[in-house]
Design a protein around this nucleic acid. Sequence first.
RNA 1: GCGAGCGUGGCGGAACUGGCAGACGCGCAGGACUUAGGAUCCUGUGGGGAAACCCAUCCGGGUUCGACUCCCGGCGUUCGCACCA
Length: 814
Amino acid sequence: MSDNTPYQPDVVEARWQARWAEAHTNEPDLKGARRPFYNLMMFPYPSAEGLHVGNMFAFTGSDLYGRFKRLQGFQVFEPMGYDAFGIHSENFAIKQGIHPGELIPRNIAAFRRQLHRIGGMFDWRHELSTTDPAYYKWTQWIFLQLYKAGKAYKKRAAVNWCPDCKTVLANEQVINGYCERHPDTKVEQRMLEQWFFRISDYAPRLLANLENLDWSESTRLAQQNWIGRSKGARIVFAARDPVGEVVPLEVFTTRPDTLHGATYLVIAPEHPAVGRLTAPEHREAVQAYLDRTARMDLVSRKTVKEKTGEFTGSYAVNPATGKAIPIWIADYVLTDYGTGAIMAVPGHDERDFEFARKFELPVVRVVARANDHPDASLDEAFTETDGVHLVNSGDLNGLSIADAASRVEEMLEAKGAGNGVVNYRLHDWCISRQRYWGPPIPIIYCDACGTVPVPEKDLPVILPPIDDFRPDDSGVSPLARHEEWYYVPCPACGKRARRETDVSDTFLDSSWYYLRYPSSDLDDRPFDENLNKRWLPVTTYIGGNEHAVLHLLYSRFVTMVLKELGLVDFEEPFTRFRAHGTIVKDGAKMSKSRGNVVVPDDYINQWGADTFRMYLMSLGPFQDGGDFRDAGISGPRRFLDKVWQLVHETMATDACGEITHRVLVKWHRTKAKVTEDMEGLKYNTAIAAMMELVNALREENCCERQIIEDLVLMLAPIAPHFAEENWERLGHTTSIFEAKWPTWDTELMIEGTVDIVIQVSGRTRSKIAVGRGAAEDEVLEAARRDETTRRFIDGKEVRKVIYVPNRLINIVVG
RNA sequence: GCGAGCGUGGCGGAACUGGCAGACGCGCAGGACUUAGGAUCCUGUGGGGAAACCCAUCCGGGUUCGACUCCCGGCGUUCGCACCA
């Protein structure tokens, strides 16, 4: 039946990859699937270095799950694509002097070849690239839907600016305040008009929905922190400008209870009231301070350093004490959080304390522990909130933090000077990029008509293939130089108008790609309603936690808006999300600049894709990741060789040995364990369990066909080509992925006898075999007869016996 | 600084709701087969000890008949976020 040729991975893999393509094995019936399962993995950015081991680890773990689901009877849709726009590609292209329009297709071709080799169950009919006009046409369309719904707006915002590159930098390109490419050039901030999405309006819903999502806990927490809900109060302080007029100055605080301790106010340098509140004799100093902070890049401003600030010369009245307190300007107060102004309570806030010390501002204690003297001086900010009470706070004295806070809120409301509010950290999403390599934002500016959206029928706004795609010192995208593209008739009035020259953020490309996959072949709409009904939301999404915040949050936001617009009928795109671990090399993430990128190709050539898949999955828990080293690849390969041999024996002999009780129990237990482990993404222990089964079969000289078939089936998700080949060797004529996942019999998993551990006073001393479910008396009697045990209990008084059925007996002696 | 996680043989890692610590694999040592072995197979492999036993899951306490697992306090490490009032 079966000849005994050795296992040759290269032959087997080439053969089955060809067969899958030919037989459309990996292409589910999208329109008619009965049990659809959308198995999504994060599409890669096709870098020039090629697909590395980290990518393969992620894709294999996800593919394994998809194949497992398929064997369980689902129709699994597992698409793949390329997130190919963005600053990474552009910077690399600039460095190499190759146009990204030329470079990216090359990289994609290399990725596609590698993706085929790793043996994923990809449905290549629905491959997509975000750089394809047929795709970004709809990215632009989504922008227009958000614009029309009032979710997109333009405002001035700060960007990092390198005076040497004469261009806008991303935060990652700023190293300690200096330009990545010009280490001697300080990066500055510049104010530019930019497009934003109103994601902050959705903060409460984005937060509340998290409760009901089946997501990795770490990812949920990261989103929670990012959204950053704080409960506090809005308090209006009556400030007076230099001519004595009242200027209401609103602050946000999470500690309204400490209002009596507010000894000064601080406003951000960009606060709109700065000019009005600056007294003439302070103007020069304040202006100098503003200039200094404005020149600083965004990253440095956000790094903790010594506090700086300047007095405006004006005062405001504390609504609780009626006292006038000074108003300062300092960049430790952020413009874009809360109201851009704070009440400083140096006694009970570390930052305020530090500032007060430096500028010799008064520090007042208003919170104390039970035994503290109310006026005990403070060497540092006292920030305890438990078991403390208010002091030096008039009628709030003696109250707890919470009680004092609500009293203050009542007082404020009565006076019309504020109220309790909830604040979110989440900022609106800036989608403008003053760059070339992205989808142009589909907006036209007309002198007569103002801001005019590009009519949908004119989409896509094609990214013109200009030669000089490098940014220049104009502060606008290189697209502005391309006159025949830049000037365009106004869609409303037909007069000469100008295009928006910013392109959109890569995260917009990736915020909706999962909606596109099932419909990627349609050119008249972004996605088909019926296909969406069948396939979305995504059943299981597996990806890296580096996208825990931005990508996943933006995708949720876009989906929410589309739901509101009636374009989709769900508001959460990913029902289940699992974060996989990261594969690092020598303790660091793989990157070209570190020179530690490991490419899978050589390993696949030497050992085969199946062996390498199995090796990667056996390194440790999939959700932990780990350090890549290649020691030990031979283990999985030896294992596959043994299975290959077992299949041969099954087919070559009639007598495969009897199924001993030990093998029977092991067989059924393995099926149960592997199923459970795969469901929980614990692939490493699933693999170990199968190895144990093989060891048992070999020791018992058993190659019983039923067992071998189950084994091959269980291996199919991990080593798909290998499993197909062996399924065929076992005489099957259809793909193993048409077969059914093995079932097991719980009754047969039970051993007739069990080993009971005997402990004496909590220390393990011996072990005896007894019948399953034996009673305590019986076990105790057997233990008393056990020689080793007797050495420890004879002549001693037994004080207590603890018996755990089928497991252990602990005899406590005195 | 805040948040989350982790710390187990030479190495990667197992260990269900507290119940035989070290599954499985790598490596290593010895042996078999071989002209050969970087193939394959068998045996052994946490440390100490001749043995009985003793010691061992980062360190120090605690709870418990019993702790890798739970609690308290340290130390180390990784990953997020980072002046968010």
